[in-house]
């Protein structure tokens, strides 16, 4: 029992051990040890560089994530509830799902200039179709009997959405949130790399030019850490609250 409880911690320790062993064996600047990465991380924190660039990336992530989720959920639910609307927009969705992220980013920068809004728009255009598809499928799977019950008892649209539809869509919302965070931050790095003068993508590009692998890993660890904190401080408690009835 105690072993299975500690398995996640043991797996992280095993990963760090493997990394340390490989770094010791190779003894190359191409694979710095965890201890070196930790030292570089601390130096970047003390200089204020890492918090600034991480903050800029997080700000872009929050804005683009919020807009993508809001738009994607609204359109996804609408398409899931209306067959004619879905039949009309289905092909658009397939097109937008298959346009490479790089193409959207380049087009947004070419059409709207190397601006903050163009960067955010590029991220949103890449993410929204995924949210739409997830929520559309969730909406199609809604329990029709419960919707009939709501209609029969005269629930308003808001009440039906809040008490009948959204609780059923919870797993789909969480799935879109988690996959969204993972996808968006990767796109943001590309957006920053191509057309911004700050943020983690910009910094990683510089470190790449200098072959500074330790700094690249230090920035990666920082970002993954932030996303993990968000998972445990926000998403997990939200999950527990919404699924209390189970």
């Amino acid at each position: 029992m105690s072993i299975s409880k500690n398995l996640p911690m043991l797996s992280i320790l095993a990963f760090l051990g493997l990394w340390q062993g490989l770094a010791f064996y190779l003894h190359s600047p191409l694979l710095p040890s965890p201890e070196t990465v930790a030292r570089i991380f601390w130096q970047h924190c003390q200089s204020g560089e890492l918090p600034y660039h991480l903050g800029m990336t997080l700000l872009r992530l929050i804005v683009s994530f919020a807009i993508s989720m809001l738009l994607g959920c609204s359109i996804g639910i609408a398409l899931g509830r209306n067959e004619k609307l879905n039949a009309f927009f289905d092909n658009w969705l397939v097109i937008f799902l298959n346009v490479p992220a790089l193409v959207t980013i380049i087009l947004c920068y070419v059409w709207f200039g190397l601006t903050e809004s163009a960067a955010i728009l590029a991220v949103i255009l890449n993410k929204v179709p995924n949210v739409i598809v997830t929520l559309r499928e969730g909406t199609r799977a809604l329990d029709k009997d419960l919707l009939n019950m709501a209609k029969c008892y005269g629930f308003s649209h808001t009440k039906t959405l809040r008490h009948v539809i959204l609780p059923q869509l919870h797993p789909f919302l969480m799935s879109a949130t988690r996959s969204g965070l993972a996808l968006i931050w990767k796109i943001i790095l590309m957006v920053e790399l191509l057309g911004r003068s700050n943020g983690m993508g910009y910094q990683l590009h510089l470190f790449f030019q200098w072959f500074d692998i330790a700094s690249i890993l230090a920035y990666t660890v920082a970002f993954v850490g932030v996303i993990q904190i968000f998972e445990f401080a926000v998403l997990k408690p939200l999950d527990n609250l919404a699924l209390k009835w189970r």
Partner: peptide
């Protein structure tokens, strides 16, 4: 109208009392 369906059609995430009270606007 009041309707008792073939299936109970209760919201699984609401308690018995909440399921009953929810039909009031």
């Amino acid at each position: 109208i009041g309707f008792v369906f073939q299936q109970p059609c209760l919201l699984p995430w609401r308690t018995v009392r909440e399921n009953i009270e929810l039909v009031f606007a």
